[in-house]
Write a protein that binds this DNA or RNA. Structure first.
Lengths: 339, 339
DNA sequence: CTGAAAGCGCTTACAG
DNA sequence: CTGAAAGCGCTTACAG
């Protein structure tokens, strides 16, 4: 089947290609009646402008890019990215933008991908996820004039606009709740050490744990996997002085931690309280249901997409603070049983 | 920063643009020495060919498309798609192809997306997931000359090449195992009714359950969510004649089912055996660990990508049968306790 | 083996 | 309000 071109539309409408272009793009330079006729014909013969020709003529590529550098295994485990992508997509597709996705091996490869996309003019802008301290992508994207929105922060975003939520506040809220319940020995199983949001959560954890009520605290990094969550939990619970509460940086590790506690014969929440970061349906399926930090991840992605599109249109875009995670208490947290 | 073009490379190398193009694309028409020099200069000034110009000149778009029509919530829950995408990506990016992703509301919208992509020449080919009986996408893609590989089947794929695995065999293997354990009352919580693979699994289930050993059987559809899995399980276990074994079409529902059984005071596996389809790490984190149908989903995606790229190169591509899911027995299955 | 030139399908100043 | 034309940056026959 032959693809119709703008020339086909012009011929049938009896106008020039320029007129068709103006009509299709809502530009002035064509009468309302002609515009109507042109649109009807385009619709009728199923015309869609060739995206390459459009992009080459200086118009936009109508695509934005997202490169992710987590191992496939982790991407599958965590609902986070798929939910984020769903939210991004909902916003993009309503504006006729496509999302170009690339999964790469490491942050270095991500830099190369962004640089290549820029050279290829393949995308009009990009998202930056999984920000790290001194992230090489930030100065590179500032240097190139490739519109970019960082999903994350605050801090280390350079001059790039960013959409962020206050992870530190969520950690503080959680710890204050645990302290109020009477917990005095609190541990945390954190995420990947290099990531900025991990560091922000870690600092917040340490700051709150300096309060006099907290007698013992420990924050341990992990790779986000259930295996790692289980391993760290086993170690924490086997120590002579074990925590009465553990917070986990994702839900998979929290569920793994719950399983370990049960396998070791510890009552949850009686002998161990558990809090999960990110509230997937699974948190409500286990017994006891997990107290979790909930947030609307698709909405987060939607905000990021909206900001990137505004940036591409040339609007001034600054930082946008999203709502942030809030604590949803369930059966896995309670006052520690006197022991 | 100004993007370097092919003219910049040509000028610095003292050759024509044509020569640069031949050198870059590994075409004959340029001496080895000149090719070397050109490549070195391109590398040095960070030249990447403008993808729009390339696509417009009849070369490929160097991108393939995937449209998904599941609600955001479900996409996040199931590791399947993210793992599939990871596998697809690994193969594509090693060949310099990008993946264009679009999440849409329903199958109708998917048809429109493919048609638009074709008109825009935005992609060189597409994947088709979540095949349905009498899927409108199949005749449409056959009519357009847009290379397409169906991920799924067998059957209802028309003349399109497809990558599939034998779900029916996996159902049969599972049921024969349960029957051998001594189960005589077996239920299944299936996936979305419209999907072909759901229907294939359902037929296989019903076929095996016609065997004389099976005294009672029931297959119930669901929407893949944990809530639905829990609801159906509760209903199954509350009936006067309840099953001694249930198999679930995904792991989230199986975990939900396990939780329901425990909440109802039923011993797993003593009073109820549970089998999950798709073996995520979570299956090993719950207690007892779930017997599951395991498969290598990233590899599945990789095969599909390899076939699509071959099709785009103009090679003959037929059906490819992937390895398929195999049963991994764990603690959630055992002979039914005499009751 | 190399160069000059046409052409892909749009968009957008520039004249009428 | 409309038309003719240049140009985006490549690829690829076509001459030399």
């Amino acid at each position: 089947m032959k693809r119709p071109t703008i020339a086909d539309v012009a011929r049938r409408a009896g106008v020039s290609k320029g007129a068709v272009s103006y009509a299709l793009n809502g530009q002035p330079g064509v009468s309302a009646a002609t515009r109507q006729r042109i649109l009807a014909i385009a619709e009728e013969i199923g015309f869609n402008p060739n995206s390459a020709a459009r992009a080459l003529s200086g118009a936009s590529a109508r695509a934005v890019g997202l490169a992710l550098s987590r191992p496939a295994r982790i991407l599958g485990i965590e609902p986070f990215f798929m939910e984020l992508i769903s939210g991004v997509e909902a916003e993009l597709s309503s504006r006729g933008y496509a999302l170009t996705l690339q999964v790469v091996a490491d942050p270095e490869a991500e830099v190369a991908v962004y640089r290549r996309w820029w050279g290829e003019r393949r995308v009009d802008g990009v998202f930056v996820c999984d920000l790290r301290a001194d992230d090489r992508r930030v100065p590179m994207l500032e240097e190139l004039d490739l519109p970019a929105v960082v999903i994350g922060g605050p801090g280390h975003t350079g001059a790039l606009p960013h959409v962020w939520s206050d992870d530190a506040a969520a950690v503080t809220e959680t710890l204050e709740y645990l302290i109020a319940l009477g917990h005095r020995r609190i541990a945390r199983v954190g995420g990947l050490p290099g990531l900025l949001h991990t560091e922000l959560r870690t600092s917040a954890f340490q700051r709150v744990c300096e309060r006099p009520e907290v007698r013992w605290s420990l924050s341990v990094p992990s790779d986000y996997s259930g295996e790692d969550g289980a391993r760290v939990t086993r170690r924490l619970l086997s120590a002579p002085e074990r925590p009465t509460a553990i917070m986990y940086d994702n839900d998979v590790m929290a569920i793994a931690g719950l399983a370990v506690a049960q396998e070791m014969g510890l009552a949850v929440p009686g002998e161990l309280s558990i809090v999960a970061w990110d509230d997937s349906p699974l948190c409500q399926l286990v017994h006891p249901a997990l107290t979790a930090l909930s947030r609307d991840i698709p909405a987060y992605g939607g905000h990021a997409a909206r900001h990137l599109l505004a940036l591409i249109r040339g609007e001034q875009v600054g930082a946008y603070q999203d709502e942030g995670a809030h604590l949803t208490p369930r059966g896995s947290t309670a006052p520690p049983r006197a022991s």
